[in-house]
């Protein structure tokens, strides 16, 4: 018994050889669109990721500064005690 997936692949290859062979312009056209779109999409994705990371690091810095300020304000009180 042949596996159905293999049968499907074989049928796809057969049809591809017969019919898809005439669709090269269409295939390349949509490959071109994909290549054209993938670059800006990747750049936008990376920009958003970088801006988020920068914002997160800024938030972390602000939080650590606030903690330091708290610690400094509590230090003199401890010394007095």
């Amino acid at each position: 018994m042949t596996h159905p997936a293999l049968l499907m692949l074989l049928s796809f290859l057969r049809v591809a050889q017969e019919d898809l062979g005439t669709q090269y312009d269409n295939i390349l056209f949509y490959t071109m669109i994909f290549l054209w779109v993938i670059m800006p999409v990747f750049i936008v994705y990376e920009e958003i990721k970088e801006r988020r990371s920068l914002a997160a690091s800024e938030r972390a810095l602000e939080a650590s500064n606030a903690e330091k300020a708290k610690a400094e304000s509590s230090e003199p009180a401890e010394k007095k005690q």
Binding site: M8, F12, V15, Q23, D25, F29, Y30, M32, I33, W36
Partner: peptide, 27 residues
């Protein structure tokens, strides 16, 4: 599934005609 894929591909507008020529040029 291959027939469906081919059907979808075949139903798409023919690539290099009219406005698509402009799209290729811009790309």
């Amino acid at each position: 599934m291959a027939d469906i894929a081919l059907g979808i591909l075949g139903s798409l507008p023919t690539a290099i005609e009219g406005t698509n020529r402009l799209v290729v040029d811009i790309a």
